[in-house]
Every structure is written in structure tokens, then in C-alpha cells.
Amino acid sequence: MSAPARDNLTSKNIVAFLADIFERRGGEEYLGEPVTMAEHMLQGAHLAEQQGEAEAIIVATLLHDIGHFTSEFGTFSMNDTKDKYHEVAGGRVLERFFPSIVTDCVRQHVAAKRYICATDPDYFGQLSEASIHSLKLQGGPMSAAEVAEFEKQPNLREIVRVRHLDDAGKVAGMATPGFEHYMPMLQRVVDAHCGAAGG
């Protein structure tokens, strides 16, 4: 079965659409890291699952970088001189089908890096070279005013959690389940949200 076009997405085929993206684009280089895009997202989801996180957090971690695949601006590279806002692109694709806890984590995972850099003095030293480069493009650590505003996020704890899982998913050779392992979970989260939202 061919993947549905973005304009024809429904709660019944969004998971197939996402699976198709992973299959076609997942082997692409991940921002100068020692893993592919798919390996990075699958590692984060696997770690979340191993650590007993709720399904919404596992799903958010799995999909946090989906905007790299769906953004008309293309994926990040170490030669970039401006940000491409993949988090916005990803949130746009997911917002009709996933609850706000998922879409908030996707939309805010870039801001979360800036937030943690401003609030945790040890965090910057743990970032990879590629993550430091993208941080510069994304505005650097937050100011005190930005921190205060960001802390008003209703899903702040979950957003920060997904950011840490994002950072952990960059290990060359880590064995993880494939995307198909998460498809039933994705569908459950979609069905619960779309049912509660009346469609």
C-alpha cells in the first residue's frame, strides 16, 4: 500500500504516513552525529520505553524530529548559517492527530535545549558538536526573561524529559526495535486523542 499524501491524512492512515517517512528517509545522516535520523529517534523512544515512560512520552520522543523529514526547508547540516525550524514543521504535521502533550514536546524540544542550557550549568558540556552548532543557530541559551516565559509551559516537565531522551539517542551501534514495534502504540495514542476530540 502506498503512503497517503499529506493532504489526505486521517486518524486511520497517519501512522502509515509516518512509517513511510521513516522507511524512505530514516537512513539519512543525522546532523553530523554517528547515527542516522531513524536510529536517533528510535534510540530515544527505546530508552523512554526501557525507563517506563508513559506512551505519550515514548511517542513524542519517537516523533520529535519528524519535521526534518517533512520540512520544505530540508534537513539541518553543519554548514547551515540559519535555523530551519524543523520543530515547527513537525508540530504542524502532528497537531491534528496527537494530544498536546505530544505536540508540545515536538514543538518545544529545540527551545528546551536553550532552556536547559540556561538553567543547568552542567548541560552545555554534555552537548555534541552538532548540537552546539544548532544551538547557536537557534538563539543560544535563554535569557532570564525567556526562562520565566518558558516555565509557563503546561507540559514543561514532559518537554524537558523528551529533550534529555533526545540528547541520549546518539549512540553508534545501539540495538533498538524498528518503527513497526511502535506502530500499535502510535495508533492507540491517535485513537485516544481523535476519539476524545470527536474525530
Rank of each mutant, 00 (worst) to 15 (best):
R114E: 00
K152C: 08
H109V: 00
T119I: 10
Q126E: 09
L18W: 01
T81Q: 09
M142L: 06
S77K: 12
P4M: 04
R114F: 07
D166E: 10
D20T: 09
A175V: 13
L18S: 08
F22V: 13
N79Y: 06
G74T: 12
S100F: 11
R163K: 14
A175N: 12
E149V: 15
I116H: 03
A168P: 05
A197K: 13
V189G: 05
S143Q: 03
L18M: 10
G125E: 01
A5M: 14
S134H: 15
N13P: 08
E33F: 05
V189A: 08
L63A: 02
G198N: 09
F97A: 06
K152L: 12
S71C: 06
F69H: 10
L42T: 04
P184M: 03
H164W: 10
H46P: 06
G91K: 01
I58T: 14
E55K: 15
G32K: 05
K136Q: 15
A130M: 00
C117Q: 04
K136L: 11
C117W: 03
T61Y: 01
V147W: 01
E149M: 11
H68S: 11
S128H: 10
R25H: 13
F98N: 05
V88F: 09
Q126I: 08
F124Y: 14
Q50V: 05
Q187P: 05
A111R: 11
R24Q: 13
E39A: 08
G44L: 00
Y30V: 04
D104Y: 07
A175L: 08
V88A: 09
I57S: 11
T103W: 00
D167F: 07
M1Y: 13
L135C: 02
F98P: 00
K82R: 13
I132L: 14
P177Q: 03
Q138I: 01
E151C: 03
L9N: 03
N8E: 15
E28T: 15
Q43E: 03
G52S: 08
S143V: 02
A19E: 12
D120K: 03
R161G: 02
M183S: 12
C194M: 10
M142F: 14
I21Q: 12
T75D: 12
N79P: 02
M1C: 13
S143E: 04
V106H: 02
H181F: 06
L156S: 01
R157E: 14
Y182I: 01
L62F: 05
M78I: 07
V162C: 08
R163F: 08
G52T: 00
P177H: 05
P184K: 01
E49F: 13
S11C: 14
Q108E: 12
L42Q: 02
N8W: 10
R24I: 01
D122K: 10
T103D: 09
G44F: 00
M37V: 14
A3H: 06
E28L: 12
H64P: 02
L165T: 01
D122E: 13
V160E: 03
K170L: 09
A48D: 02
R96A: 12
E55S: 14
G27T: 09
L47R: 12
A118L: 07
E33G: 07
S100Q: 15
F76A: 10
P141H: 03
L94W: 04
S77G: 07
Q138V: 07
M185A: 07
A3Y: 06
D20M: 02
A112R: 00
R107L: 07
R24E: 11
R188A: 00
S143H: 06
N13Y: 06
L137Q: 01
Q187A: 07
S71P: 04
T75S: 15
A175C: 02
